[in-house]
Nucleic acid binder design. Structure first.
Lengths: 184, 184
DNA sequence: TCAGATCTTGACCGATCGGTCAGACTGTGA
DNA sequence: TCACAGTCTGACCGATCGGTCAAGATCTGA
């Protein structure tokens, strides 16, 4: 029982560090946020941050890992479906993912070149590329690929700014279908 | 004549500073780029950079000013047109603008919150908002507004990565029309 | 009560940051 | 030749950065 309480106490500081860091990283960027900034908002010291995390970068990596993992899972899932089903599932799945992970996606978006250097995210780019292809209806037409990339980037950018995911979801799915699905 | 030669010499270093800074700012961000980084690539000293520009921030502001100005001009131009003509002109004008200023748009994109604090860019957000409305066909439907924002952000993101603007232009215009224009 | 584990911190570190300035170099026109 | 303007720079500045560490506080189980 005491172990559980200990875990909860430890989790509280650690979770608060992640929460504050996520907010600051998405507002002013990874480089625009200092350990000092995070510590002040959490109400602890820089040394506390670095007791819980190996480095500033480790905080970022821990924040974005779940979203990166779910992106890879979505890619894997849609690879197994036929073209039309996969396109629909990819559109809805992607919209749901970016709405669920708005902040994390903002971090990935802002620091993609930097994150791509990290081994943990080596598959991020290929997975994204495959997802683009799926959303383009597996079309070889360059215009369809471009359209898919426009919609993915646009959905991401708008989702990031969003306060009401439930209201936004149908509109995002609709604009993607309209732009990408034949006869939509 | 000597004045002209002097102008050319002065312009050369200054232009090179802007060119290198634009590339570095768009690759690793304003905060991710140091005066030292820029100086090393230009082949001069930090003091030379600050001889030609008042500050690091002044370099950024000078880089993005033309694009911001042309965005405002596009907004002004399309405000005077009827809805359908304005929508089409705004779509094409916006695509042309982001293709012409890919790097500068990347800088604006990455540092928007920071830039919006500067008086010179106070109208950037309102102009962008009006452009969204124009591209949405001046529709009051929130879904149309969302669709317009998705397309603007998506076109911007894809244009930034682009190597061949001439090839990309028709595809960008087409996906915007398809997503936004009734009966397209 | 006490040893050990966990959490926290102030002081400090080397490195880098944006920026300044006195002085040197170059070019020019009188 | 020389005064002046324009360009450039090395050395330096104060501030901030990411990170370390010895030590203290707290909690826990025996």
């Amino acid at each position: 029982m005491a172990e559980v309480v200990g875990e909860m106490v430890r989790s509280r500081t650690r979770d608060e560090i992640l929460s504050v860091a996520a907010r600051l990283f998405s507002q002013v960027g990874f480089k625009g946020t200092s350990l000092h900034d995070i510590a002040v908002e959490v109400g602890c010291s820089k040394a506390t941050l670095l007791y819980h995390f190996d480095s500033k970068e480790a905080i970022l990596l821990e924040l974005v890992a779940p979203a990166a993992r779910d992106l890879a899972a979505l890619d894997a899932k849609t690879s197994e479906l036929d073209t039309a089903t996969a396109q629909e599932a990819a559109i809805e799945g992607f919209v749901d993912l970016v709405l669920a992970y708005r902040r994390e996606v903002a971090l990935i978006y802002a620091d993609l070149p930097h994150l791509l250097e990290h081994p943990a995210f080596a598959d991020l780019q290929p997975a994204t590329t495959r997802l683009v292809t799926t959303i383009a209806g597996r079309s070889a037409d360059p215009a369809a690929q471009i359209a898919a990339r426009v919609l993915l980037a646009g959905i991401t950018a708008v989702a990031i700014e969003c306060d009401d995911p439930a209201e936004l979801r149908p509109a995002l799915v609709r604009v993607a279908r309209r732009a990408l699905v034949p006869g939509a």
